[in-house]
Design a protein around this nucleic acid. Structure first.
Length: 562
RNA sequence: GUCCCAGUAGCUCAGCUGGAUAGAGCAACAGACUUCUAAUCUGUAGGUCGGGCGUUCGAAUCGCUCCUGGGACGCCA
């Protein structure tokens, strides 16, 4: 059922084809204030056509308008024609819909089971899992959930940064200053220390960089010493990352990182040569993409490969393996140029599927207004932040609900929920100034606020002993109207979140729903004996179900008690 | 220098493809727990929507330009 379309139909008949239905649909808007009705039609543009004042046109439309039964009335004010929905009919309809569809409410099959690969998280081996990777991880994970709910088959790929010149540098640093024992004790911390030391020393001794490049060359050529060190670094790192993914509840379908494509790059270079795209410039192999972009580097003058080479191989491999309709890259905005070049090279190679490729960029996490740099050791470790958040949640529980069962698990859900929500609630392209204080906030527009609201709803359902029956619930409660209209919006929000690759739409939606519910909660005694009690419980059930589902899409769990 | 983001209340941000009185949260102040979880709710206060020009019946929203901040710009990823 689509109320907006009903209004469009009614208007279309009145206007006798003056405006197309699609035009009408675009013109109709939501009034700014609730007392102005549910849909509004502005008559200003028609004023020119009919040579009458907008208000007169609105009045005339109102006189003859034949609205379907679900509409209660129409009003005109200031050149607008406003229509009001029949509150109890719509309330009854939507509540029973959610009652029967449960967590499937909002699901669709717009994806037709087509495959969408999502490249996200992708931390760098031998480096700590920083706050920067958090963004990619939670955005990518949420997009995957949303895509699945919309009928896509997803392939979640953790494109690990496990290859590249950095490993040459790390090997040099380890051989010069490393201590096996120390690295075994605290791998990430020790390796990071070596990496930082390398860059500090390299500022004075330019030769170090050359040594690093040489060792990477050896690594690419299969040098045994280099390979075994690399493998060791990789294993230790993966163990460390697994802890973070467990805490966050994120899973992947593939951990094929950059190294996986080592034996697939010759093929790419061959293809480029066949198409005559490869050029030599200053000793390096490049592909010219277009005038407004610098060329894409494929091979360095020493013959080793680059990031772009591996990404080309990866894209081709993924198309061959998964036949994706869409391939998303959830990677920081600072790499926008790289992806523009990459997609452009694939287009030049004649890959018709390049249209399905999309870079989903996001803003940076800044420290004192500047980019956090691993090289200079300016990183904040995600695991520490998560642990802090969980500890704070534990503290809150022991103050507010000390008898709660399963405290540890609930604390984990709330702590990580706060961190994830904090990241997802704002538009992804915004830069975020790192603030532990903000991330550990549990009041106001936060994850725990939404979780708390959900727990409240669950609690009421428990105490009210709510049981689902086949009976149709008749809800006639004007105070619930904001909740009802918000519930109606859920499927549209999902659509927008997927189209714009923007999980923040859903995060903001959970806040709207939670706020409207808490307001209702404050003014209506739901468990009080009342002829509407069962219908009200059904309303609570609807809110609880949609909140839980929306949070799930964001990658956040919703405890029943907290 | 060229290109890409962004600039809305003291702070953090909403504001969908232009529309009716500019919206939250935090912080501040004042209220509401013997009553469904106060991680909540209700009020008060707070804004030349970076500046200018333009398009339009109508601009925070679109176009141009300038200013400010961030990022990217061949052998890092």
């Amino acid at each position: 059922m689509n109320y907006k379309n009903m209004f469009v139909e009614a208007l279309f008949i009145q206007l006798q084809g003056t405006l197309e239905k699609t035009v009408l649909e675009n013109m109709i808007e939501k009034p700014k204030y609730e007392n102005m009705g549910d849909w509004a039609f502005p008559c200003f543009e028609l004023a020119k056509v009919y040579r009458e004042s907008p208000q007169t046109i609105a009045d005339k439309l109102k006189q003859n308008l034949e609205l379907p039964a679900l509409f209660e009335k129409a009003e005109t004010v200031g050149g607008y024609l406003n229509v009001f929905l029949h509150k109890s009919d719509v309330s009854t309809y939507i509540i029973n819909k959610i009652l029967s569809e449960k967590s499937n409410y909002g699901s669709s099959n717009t994806g037709h089971n087509k495959v969408i690969t999502i490249d996200f998280s992708s931390p760098n081996i031998a480096k700590p899992f920083s706050m920067g990777h958090l963004r990619s991880t939670v955005i990518g994970n949420a997009l995957a959930n949303i895509a699945e709910k919309s009928g896509y088959t997803t392939v979640k790929i953790n494109h690990l940064g496990d290859w590249g010149t950095q490993f040459g540098k790390l090997i040099v640093a380890y051989k010069k200053w490393g201590d096996e024992k120390k690295v075994k004790e605290k791998p990430i911390k020790e390796l990071l220390k070596l990496y930082i030391q390398f860059h500090e020393e390299a500022e004075q001794y330019e030769d170090l960089n050359n040594e690093g490049r040489e060792w990477f060359k050896k690594l690419e050529e299969g040098n045994e010493e280099a390979l075994s060190l690399w493998q060791w670094f990789r294993e230790e790192s993966l163990k460390e990352f697994a802890k973070v993914y467990d805490l966050l509840g994120v899973k992947f379908d593939s951990y094929n990182g950059e190294a996986f494509y080592n034996d697939k790059m010759d093929h790419v270079i061959q293809l480029l040569e066949e198409k005559n795209l490869l050029q030599v410039s200053e000793g390096a192999r490049i592909v010219e993409v277009s005038n407004d972009m610098p060329p894409c580097l494929i091979k360095k003058k020493d013959g080793t490969t680059l990031y772009a080479t591996r990404d080309l191989a990866a894209a081709i491999y993924r198309q061959d393996t998964y036949q994706f309709a869409k391939a998303l890259y959830v990677v920081g905005h600072e790499q926008s140029l790289h992806f523009k070049q990459l997609f452009s090279v694939l287009e030049k190679m004649g890959c018709t599927w390049h249209k399905g490729l999309a870079h989903v960029p996001f803003g940076m996490i800044l420290k004192d207004g500047k980019k956090m740099s691993t090289r200079k050791g300016k990183v904040v470790l995600l695991e520490e932040v998560l642990q802090d958040a969980i500890k704070l949640a534990e503290k809150n529980i022991s103050e507010k609900n000390p008898t709660l069962a399963g405290k540890d698990e609930v604390a984990r859900q709330i702590g990580t929920g706060a961190v994830i929500f904090h990241d997802l609630k704002n538009y992804r392209l915004n830069d975020i100034e790192f603030s532990l204080e903000d991330m550990l906030r549990f009041e106001g527009e936060t994850g725990p606020y939404v979780q708390y609201t959900h727990a409240r709803a669950s609690s009421i359902l428990r105490k009210g002993n709510f049981q689902q029956t086949d009976e149709v619930m008749q809800l006639d409660d004007d105070q619930a109207w904001t909740i009802i209209t918000t519930l109606v919006e859920f499927p549209n929000v999902l659509k927008r979140a997927l189209n714009d690759y923007d999980p923040s739409q859903i995060a903001k939606y959970t806040l709207d729903l939670a706020k409207s519910f808490n307001k209702y909660y404050g003014s209506v005694r739901i468990l009080e004996e009342h002829e509407q009690k069962q219908a009200r419980l059904a309303l609570v059930y609807s809110v609880q179900t949609v909140l839980q589902e929306a949070l799930r899409l964001l990658g956040i769990q919703a405890p029943d008690e907290m």
